[in-house]
């Protein structure tokens, strides 16, 4: 769907993107993880055709470079900032964005998108009066309006309430099931683990690794940790932490010794993958 080959981009002496290559497959949700300044936004901007790379190539579904406005018709962007006009109603916003794409059935599409993000009854209300979560959902609707096969969602759940977050994540999964390709950037590891088919970790302009969440954890997450709690009311409780590649074997062994009050396993997460690959936490 989207093929990026040996992409380079510098701003003066700063190498923002340094040899990134990746391929996003049709119908997958691809997560791009990286802290601010990692080169994530520059990569996205080049993928959207907003910036010209110094070298390398970006090709969309055999159509060519997204620098060509006609190719950008196949892309949908929900920027990190809520890119809406607060002085317009939800419906007016969508109608305006529809006009940019020359949509002939704009009225039907606008109504459908408002319904999709749960804002059907609020279509005639000014965006200024919307909550952060509602604005985020409308931001997503604007990206979907022209029915693009490739969606780019940049931190689409930043600063929203849990209800809106769940709604957005469910919508993304639904879109992927319908066959759309989604590139999803987020700071929330649990979101990436929940919805991304594959994840790419980027830092200092370099793509450090790409794989499914399980693959990345296996490769970089380290061992699981088995936490065993023993004891009773008379002698008190004691906690034992066992780092192991074989958590089941460790649990069996612990149970065999007896006096176990509880056992739990803590698996490595994308956070530990990120820490391992970059030497710092994603939220640093």
């Amino acid at each position: 769907m989207l093929k990026i080959t040996d992409l380079h981009k510098s701003f003066g002496a700063i190498r923002a993107v340094d040899g990134v290559s990746l391929e996003v497959r049709k119908g997958e949700v691809f997560g791009l993880l990286g802290p601010n300044g990692a080169g994530k936004s520059t990569t996205i901007n080049m993928a959207m055709g907003l910036l010209a790379p110094d070298s390398g190539a970006i090709e969309l579904e055999g159509l060519g470079s997204p620098r060509d406005p006609s190719v950008r018709r196949h892309l949908g962007l929900a920027p990190q900032a809520i890119a809406l006009y607060e002085g317009l109603t939800a419906s007016e916003n969508l109608h305006f964005f529809a006009s940019l794409y020359g949509l002939r059935d704009a009225k039907r599409r606008v109504a459908a998108m408002l319904e999709l993000v749960g804002l059907g009854p609020r279509g005639n209300d000014l965006v200024a009066g919307f909550s952060g979560g509602m604005q985020r959902r409308l931001n997503l609707a604007a990206a979907l309006l022209h029915d693009p096969p490739l969606l780019l969602l940049d931190e689409p759940t930043a600063g929203v309430d849990p209800q809106s977050r769940n709604s957005i994540l469910d919508t993304v999964r639904t879109l992927a099931k319908e066959g759309r390709t989604v590139i999803y950037t987020t700071h929330y590891m649990e979101e990436a683990q929940r919805i991304c088919d594959r994840v790419g970790v980027i830092d200092h302009g370099k793509l450090l690794d790409v794989g499914t969440v399980d693959e990345l954890i296996r490769r970089h997450g380290g061992d699981s940790e088995v936490i065993v709690e023993r004891g009773n009311a008379e002698n008190g409780h004691a906690e034992e932490r066992l780092v192991t590649k074989e958590p089941l074997a460790e649990i069996s062994a612990a149970l065999a010794k007896g006096d176990v009050t509880s056992v739990r396993v803590e698996r490595p997460t994308l956070e530990s993958v990120f820490l391992h690959l970059t030497g710092r936490s994603l939220r640093d």
Binding site: M48, G49, L50, P69, S70, V71, R72, R73, L75, L77, P79, Q80, A81, I82, A83, L84, Y85, F97, L100, Y101, A142
Partner: peptide
């Protein structure tokens, strides 16, 4: 500042 220019820029228009 608000990002709407970005949305205009990614539309299939020059």
């Amino acid at each position: 500042d608000r990002g709407t220019m970005l949305r205009l820029s990614v539309a299939p228009i020059s």
